[in-house]
């Protein structure tokens, strides 16, 4: 019948239109799977300072200190005040499996002044830790 034929034709056409869409979606999926890295999100968004430095961390940090733009301080995803950091670090260091490789990463926003970072570094030093690294962001084009 005429109507049925028409109907069937339209149905086939609908499916045909879906194929390019799926192609694009698959391409995007593959792109994000390959190019992106899945990692735990920071508790607060931090824009690290840009630098030409291209050193990658060999191991994951034992302690991660995140300092946001308004001086909010997170240690291992928990909100901290500066004074409590030393005790936490000492406790974490004493229970570390491999104390020689114990290192602390400080992820600080590029816009925060250095004087608000100094107390944090001081706490780390008071805790007796020497391996500290600052997180930076690779600058793609050197100016």
């Amino acid at each position: 019948m005429k109507i049925a034929a028409k109907y069937a034709a339209r149905k086939a056409n609908d499916d045909d239109n879906m194929v390019p869409l799926i192609n694009v979606v698959f391409l995007m999926l593959v792109f994000f799977m390959v190019a992106g890295q899945i990692r735990k999100a920071d508790p607060i968004p931090v824009i690290p300072p840009q630098s030409i430095n291209d050193t990658r961390a060999a191991t994951d940090p034992n302690i991660e200190i995140v300092v946001g733009a308004d001086n909010i301080l997170y240690v291992d995803d928990v909100l901290f005040t500066v004074e409590d950091v030393q005790a936490y670090l000492e406790q974490a260091f004493s229970s570390a499996v491999n104390p020689d490789a114990f290192w602390v990463q400080i992820k600080a926003d590029g816009d925060i002044p250095l004087d608000s970072l100094r107390p944090i570094f001081n706490q780390v030093r008071l805790a007796g830790l020497t391996k500290v690294s600052l997180a930076t962001q690779l600058e793609r084009e050197a100016k």
Partner: peptide, 8 residues
């Protein structure tokens, strides 16, 4: 992400 060592 990259790291800069700041040995204390």
């Amino acid at each position: 992400w990259r790291i800069v060592d700041t040995p204390l």
